[in-house]
Design a protein around this nucleic acid. Structure first.
Lengths: 136, 136
DNA sequence: ATAATTGCAAAATCTTTGCATACCC
DNA sequence: GGGTATGCAAAGATTTTGCAATTAT
């Protein structure tokens, strides 16, 4: 399971008890917590952890590329630890539930030059919208 | 130009001077303003318009399906009036600039049943990430 | 030892709400 | 006229910041 912690240690990320619980809470599949949810869960393991520290840790994990920020059009951003295996998201328009889904038909065709407006394109993000079983 | 205003009138949207300037400000291609930007521009045409009214109007336009909310991972949501013609977004990771791009290779293959987790899938959203000419 | 991380509390951002007043249909 | 939209100001939700105290390496 705890690939995330090991990867972080391997990359020399200074480990503190706070950072450890943040990483533990995030680790897994189909995990897409808000900063506040991370804080609540982390505080169950380490009661004195502060919100600011959670935000700090999340920001660094994003910078390191170990966690991806996902805006699901709800208010708060969500954090996805599944950054190493490319995937897409399936989001419930009503309750916000997110599932990871995996590209089936090879990678998306790149954007043709005449549609690039001079941009240097580095990636593409795909999100499916719909209703989850519970909301349908 | 003002397809948006006409469409809204046609749908019986109660028209007020505030709503008119909001619609005017939003209308066009490659327009992706934040609520606050809409407010600033609207206030140039109608100084006494309030932020709350702008939020109300935007919320209704989204509900009506005439405007689409776009979260670009920056902080504030952006509003895209180009809801009638399907398109995708090309977003600058540094400055947040957004351009509309148009699907070239037909629609994306639908999500296969075994990847749906019981969801009723209603649409898919594609966002290209990169750096705009000015930021590269 | 030393530089980085933490916690706190306050501020910055973005959005929503309640209610009296003004206005569209 | 009747009901809806507006403006205001205050509250709510989310995230960031500055700085002294603590802690990992």
């Amino acid at each position: 399971m705890s690939d995330l912690l090991e990867r972080l240690r391997g990359r020399g990320w200074r480990m503190t008890s706070q950072r450890r619980v943040v990483a533990e809470v995030l680790d897994g599949e189909h995990v897409h917590l808000t900063a506040d949810e991370v804080h609540v869960r982390a505080a169950r393991l380490l009661p004195e952890i502060s919100r600011a520290t959670v935000y700090n840790a999340l920001g660094e994990l994003v910078t390191l590329g170990e966690v991806v920020e996902v805006s699901t059009d709800g208010r708060a951003k969500r954090y996805d630890p599944n950054a190493h295996r490319p995937h897409q998201h399936l989001v419930c328009s009503r309750c916000g539930l997110i599932r990871d889904v995996h590209p089936t038909a090879g990678p998306l065709a790149g954007l043709p030059a005449e549609e690039r407006f001079g941009f240097t394109v580095s990636g593409v993000e795909v999100t499916y919208r719909g209703l989850c079983p519970a909301c349908a």
